[in-house]
Design a protein around this nucleic acid. Structure first.
Lengths: 131, 131
DNA sequence: GTACATCTTAGAGTACACTCTAAGTCAAGT
DNA sequence: ACTTGACTTAGAGTGTACTCTAAGATGTAC
């Protein structure tokens, strides 16, 4: 197996993931992202595995997982293969949460659409009244 | 037309809507909820129209509309029928936002599910290795 | 080599949406 | 009448997740 030679700066990773450089450093500081390799200058150099991890983190974040729980997940990953069952359980709980969120959004969307139609009808009535 | 005789206390409305009494007062203070009628004692007495309005507010809130935009909507409602087109436009923009959110959730859900399956496969492998 | 942008850190500041507190008034049961 | 719990207000406090600042080191283009 060969070492990964990809070396991205923090700005490149920011552009790639949609996070800001500030947020990337913040995530590393709180332990969401494992310590990133440094160039001789001390500047961070991200490899493609780092990028994969960050992309999965953003996926969890965008689906509403609290940072605290993401950190718990990161800790499990750090502990190695013995935690795979726990990781799966955590993700399955999260999966159910996402499905609930989607269902709730769809239900509330119906109410918004009902109101939109109600307003459309009113607009039509006013147009007729203007004739 | 007859006056609405429903008279609910703040606690009853809280139980009915899932908001807390604190939040109901807060919403009224910032202008999301129009001033509620008071009993002689000064205590709030909500009527069923108030309840309908609060339910629609929670529907907007749960679908991620920022409080500031909800306030804008409340102001349009307060201004009367001349703002119906603006209200519909606001809700249609919000509708598109909800649809985008759902699409994004579904896409990220797939990534979570992919990872769950990946972990399941790993678990299966470990079980075989243990034989 | 000289600008000028980008990187580093620890720690402070911000935005959002509540959530609670304190001090006092009011309502319902016995 | 008395207790217990709910109500009132203005304003302070909280939790979450960033987001920015300052001061200085480094990298890149001309």
């Amino acid at each position: 197996m060969q070492a990964d030679l990809t070396e991205l700066t923090i700005q490149e990773v920011a552009e790639n993931t949609g996070l800001t450089a500030h947020t990337l450093r913040y995530y590393e500081r709180i332990g969401l992202i494992f310590p990133i390799n440094r160039a001789e200058s001390g500047h961070r150099r991200y490899c493609s595995r780092d990028l994969d991890w960050i992309r999965f983190l953003t996926c969890l974040r965008k689906t509403g997982m609290p940072v605290r729980e993401m950190k718990r997940f990161a800790e499990l990953v750090e502990q190695g293969d013995s935690t795979i069952t726990q990781r799966r359980a955590l993700l399955e709980t999260h999966r159910r949460r996402i499905l609930n969120t989607i269902r709730e959004l769809q239900a509330n969307l119906s109410a918004v659409e009902w109101k939109i139609n109600y307003y459309s009808d009113l607009e039509a009535e006013y147009r007729i009244a203007d004739d």
